Amino acid sequence: MESMGEVLRSMNNPALRMRSRDLEHELLNHPLVLRLRAEHPELEESRMRLHLSRLYQYVEEARNCANCPGLERCPNDFQGHYSKLTVESAGGSPDLYERKTACALQVAKDSQERIRKRITSFYVDERALSEGYDEIEIMGKDPRRAQAVGRILRYIEDSKENGLSSRGLYLYGSFGTGKTFLMCYLLHELAIAGYSGVIVYMPDFVEDLKMMMMDGQKLKETVDTLKNCDLLIFDDIGAENLNPWARDHVLGAILNYRMNRKPTFYTSNYTLERLEQHLSFTSKDGEEGHKGQRLMNRISPYVDVVQLVGENQRGYPS
């Protein structure tokens, strides 16, 4: 079908005037337009003829959608949307109105973007948050992971049904067993339910804190984000090179604020006992058992411990 604009611009040519009449006849007898007329017999044909450009847009975009090339190559005027016609009364007379309506692909994309905006990542590979999740693969990839995976799935379902608990999970196990991936899955599923979440890769976070010491505003904003998000995940805790300030004044302050308020989650290669040993030692002050114990008092009473066993999925030895 020709562009309606092209036809109208050529109305001075007698042959093309006849072509425009043929086009009008073709348009008014298109199945979609006939269906619209059948559904709204109150709409006079004169009003239909007045809105030929809307009818044309409606038919063309319906054709494009029927042969959808994908959202990124959508040929419609407003990408990811199609023309929807409605009949409404204006001044006591029915008339034809056009509205742009998001297609299913656009609705799904918008939904994913809303979910993604609820999640903040500090130094964690974005692919872990954006590649999608196959629940069958999560459950079946390694049968030895089933108990840990089942515990995480129960946490998700409990949170959706009953709201967030103030208790989090401490997921520990050897290298490459999928701890980060499972926590990203938990974060994604609860973001769908409307909760905000932050995941922090601890080794890089602690290093970056040294530079944040020189930028008080950035430090405050970062700490406030970690304090106030619905779910907070410290990924690979125990692998960082701690200093007393990061441990006592940053990590300690965050955990002190969250305990009994909001759930905090952890992934680690360490058991809780070994983590306490790690937190008791800093590169500056050496062994400080009481400070490690003080921090652990803000961790261990507020988590359920989950061990993840299984094969190393990264392709190198543990």
Rank of each mutant, 00 (worst) to 15 (best):
C74R: 01
H249S: 11
G289T: 15
C74P: 02
S130P: 05
R154C: 04
K141C: 13
V223P: 02
C229H: 04
L279F: 02
F234L: 07
M213R: 15
A38V: 00
G238C: 05
E189Q: 10
I254P: 05
D285F: 11
N67K: 10
S89Q: 03
S53D: 10
E311G: 07
T120W: 05
E189R: 05
T180G: 09
M211H: 15
V250R: 04
K141R: 14
E61N: 03
D230Q: 01
D77C: 03
E60W: 02
V33Q: 06
R37K: 15
H81V: 08
D134K: 11
P263R: 04
R298Y: 06
P69V: 02
M202Y: 00
E113C: 10
R35M: 12
C184L: 13
A193C: 09
L226R: 02
I138S: 06
H290K: 15
L50I: 10
F281L: 11
L71P: 00
L96M: 07
D110H: 03
G92I: 01
G70V: 00
E131C: 10
I115H: 09
E126C: 13
T222R: 07
L272I: 11
L209C: 04
K227L: 08
V124Q: 02
W245Q: 05
L308C: 12
H40I: 05
H30N: 08
A239P: 01
H188W: 15
I119M: 04
S174T: 15
N269I: 13
K262R: 07
G132E: 02
C229D: 08
A15I: 12
L275V: 11
I192Y: 05
G289E: 14
L251E: 07
Q313R: 12
S89I: 08
F265L: 09
R9G: 14
L226G: 01
Y58S: 01
Y56N: 08
S166D: 06
L43N: 02
I138R: 11
R63A: 01
G91Q: 07
V250Y: 06
G315Q: 08
K227Q: 09
L209S: 01
S121Q: 06
Y172I: 10
G5F: 15
M18L: 15
Q112V: 13
L171N: 12
